[in-house]
Design a protein around this nucleic acid. Structure first.
Lengths: 176, 176
DNA sequence: GAGGGCAGGTTCAGTCATTGAACCTGGCCC
DNA sequence: GGGCCAGGTTCAATGACTGAACCTGCCCTC
């Protein structure tokens, strides 16, 4: 978070977690990474984040082991940032936070649904499948756009995210 | 969060939620409130937060309907801040975040356990009771100190939190 | 009824993160 | 060799955070 990133004197794992993901923008970067955003410019246009801040967040998340920076498979001169297991472990937190935001601000129409891809059931609060009774791995979560979502967004990343898709699969924004 | 608290152009309930609880210290204030901290001075000594920031956070959380400010029952000239239903709904998020912090930084010894008070079972990721199969209401969660916790903290609030106790029950720090 | 103490703040100057715009750099392609 | 793109770095200005000092009711005691 801003200034003095640490919460000294806090004997608490929530405080430890917030020292890593509590700064402005950080959780949104992780969210995008789970959605499949991997490239610097895609984060940039999708989040509307200042370039310097994005560079700083990507660096600290990589240092914390939440993301991994590596050469892009198709074009080795470019990079991509992919979520590690540690980053995937943040999925239940983000799901719970999103559920709170949705319930609290009682949006007229839901923005997105998250389902168990293999059975189609909406996920429970912790990312579990109520029908199958299992904790759904992030790669088996299907994200389906809801009626509240802007049907014609201006940036290419938002457009790519309009189709139903599994989490973690790379967002394709390259020109065909 | 710092500067421009909003995340414009984010069509996302996570972003909406972070606009309310994403600023520095805010989630720790909510955590303390769920632990039973209610008074300005107790937040102050337990969090080690600057007074001006605490006043600002209490005000914005009250405005957002997460906390409620009211006269103290025993001494009506004092106030207390108690969590509303909206604040209690943040419990699964905080539990998930704490679990991530604990697992990620693999503390040598756990700091706290959270159990279903009526059956003694440790809570699941979403605040459910694996044994009873129910979503445990926050007031039925028992917080038990773990071996990693400082056994002799300096501030009276931390001392009061050393005993096993239910969430939401008011912390007593008044002189006897 | 004057003084002291406490809860619950507000005010202030200084520090430091964030912002947005401008600039840089290395590859690639024509 | 000129232009474009990805992926940054640098910069001044803005504004949040920090810590310390101060203020204001209220209660208690002498």
């Amino acid at each position: 978070m801003a200034l003095g990133k640490d919460y000294a004197a806090q004997d608490c794992s929530i405080a430890r977690a917030l020292e890593v993901v509590g700064e402005r923008w950080t959780l949104l970067v992780v969210r995008d990474a789970l959605y499949g955003v991997r490239r610097y410019n895609d984060f940039l246009v999708h989040l509307g984040i200042p370039r310097a801040v994005l560079a700083s967040r990507l660096q600290s998340l990589t240092a914390a082991g939440v993301l991994e920076k590596r050469p892009c498979a198709q074009a080795p001169s470019r990079h991509e940032y992919v979520v590690t297991g540690r980053g995937r472990a943040l999925w239940p937190t983000l799901l719970a936070l999103g559920a709170w935001g949705r319930d609290t601000f009682s949006e007229t129409k839901p923005l997105r649904y998250f389902r168990h891809a293999t059975c189609g059931t909406d996920l429970g609060l912790a990312g579990d499948c109520p029908a199958c009774g299992v904790l759904v791995p992030v790669e088996d979560v299907e994200m389906v756009p809801g009626p509240g979502l802007d049907p014609d967004p201006s940036d290419p990343v938002s457009r790519a995210l309009l189709a139903p898709r599994r989490l973690l699969t790379a967002v394709e924004t390259d020109p065909v």
